[in-house]
């Protein structure tokens, strides 16, 4: 086990930021910690890194207790903080060299690693730039380069894509997957479920300082009732048809607006076929048809009763 967190409790005065928080990260995973703003992701990361004192619980990394002086453990961790932490007075190269130098003392090896990191995040054209001159996205990439240059076994990224343009975002997500393929275990926090769904091999969803569900993408979706969302384009819907659709087996809800019939159904086979058959018997001609599997938002919605999106 790479990370084991058990019964972690963290209070800020009377606010309980982490409430008996549990999770495990296995070797080789891209572990996603998904939660709305203020759910405690950063607090959890800071506790794991021993940057914060906590009230209760145990944290182990590679089977050893993590503490402020666990320097051997720190050596193997790459950290990308939510707030960009670089020196304004150092340029791109010097910043990466500084942080890499905290881990790697051999100068020749370091130079090579720094160059690799620069290429990895695509900052070659900007290596002499100072942070002030970098756009938000490039700055985030620099932040990442500073965290991964020493090729750590465990990489923790706290919302590395916040306020980033789509190009940088793709660059970052691809990079994370590449690091994982090269053997690093990744912990990734985000409030963007699409990102988490896209790259994470296992996901923990958290809300108000608690983990409310853990599993792979499919496992999480398997936990809930809602199966798929069917969208059918129809020109007109006669009176009573909507009620008829709602009466079909497995259907949870049906709405009609803007010429779109949206049907949500629980898991089951042939939901789409059943719906289309029914419409055919009523002589309703259909246009485009979509079928979408449930999203993590549906998972969040079903467990907490609120939209993940609304929290953003």
């Amino acid at each position: 086990m790479v990370i084991t967190v058990k019964n972690l409790v963290k209070r800020y005065d009377d606010l309980i930021a982490l409430d008996h928080f549990n999770f495990e990260v296995k070797e080789g995973e891209i572990f996603g910690l998904l939660g709305p703003n203020g759910s405690g992701k950063t607090t959890a990361i800071n506790c794991i890194l021993s940057l914060l004192k906590y009230d209760k619980g145990t944290i182990e990394i590679y089977g050893k207790p993590m503490s402020p002086d666990a320097y051997d453990l720190k050596r193997n961790i790459g950290i990308i903080m939510q707030n960009v932490a670089v020196f304004e007075e150092l340029n791109v190269y010097e910043n990466i060299d500084y942080f890499c130098g905290m881990y790697i003392t051999d100068k020749k090896l370091r130079r090579q690693l720094v160059e690799e990191a620069i290429d990895f995040v695509g900052l070659r054209d900007f290596r002499k730039f100072y942070p002030k001159k970098l756009s938000g996205g490039l700055l985030r990439r620099l932040n990442i380069a500073c965290g991964i240059a020493h090729k750590p076994k465990l990489i923790i990224l706290d919302e590395p894509t916040v306020a980033v343009d789509p190009q940088s975002r793709n660059n970052i997500l691809e990079g994370i997957q590449r690091l994982n393929k090269e053997g690093a275990t990744i912990v990734y926090t985000s409030h963007y479920m699409e990102e988490v769904e896209e790259i994470c091999t296992r996901i923990a969803i958290m809300d108000k300082g608690r983990i409310i569900a853990t599993g792979t993408n499919d496992e999480l979706k398997g936990m809930i009732n809602s199966g798929e969302k069917l969208t059918v384009e129809v020109l007109k819907l006669e009176h009573g048809i909507l009620e008829g659709v709602r009466g079909l087996p497995n259907v949870v809800s049906a709405e009609f607006y803007d010429n779109l019939l949206i049907v949500k159904s629980t898991k089951g086979k042939n939901n789409l076929v059943a719906l289309l058959d029914y419409l055919k018997t009523k002589n309703i001609s259909v246009g485009k048809i979509y079928s979408e599997p449930p999203t993590l938002n549906d998972v969040f919605l079903e467990i907490t009763g609120k939209e993940l999106r609304d929290q953003l």
């Binding site: 800071n46 890194l49 940057l51 402020p68 002086d69 320097y71 051997d72 720190k74 050596r75 961790i77 950290i79 903080m81 707030n83 960009v84 932490a85 670089v86 020196f87 304004e88 007075e89 942080f99 905290m102 881990y103």
Partner: peptide, 19 residues
């Protein structure tokens, strides 16, 4: 002031260099 900036300080604390 630079080295005491909270974000940078935290980041430095994550490294294996002893305080």
């Amino acid at each position: 002031i630079v080295f005491n900036k909270p974000d940078l300080k935290k980041r430095n604390l994550c490294t294996p260099v002893k305080i």
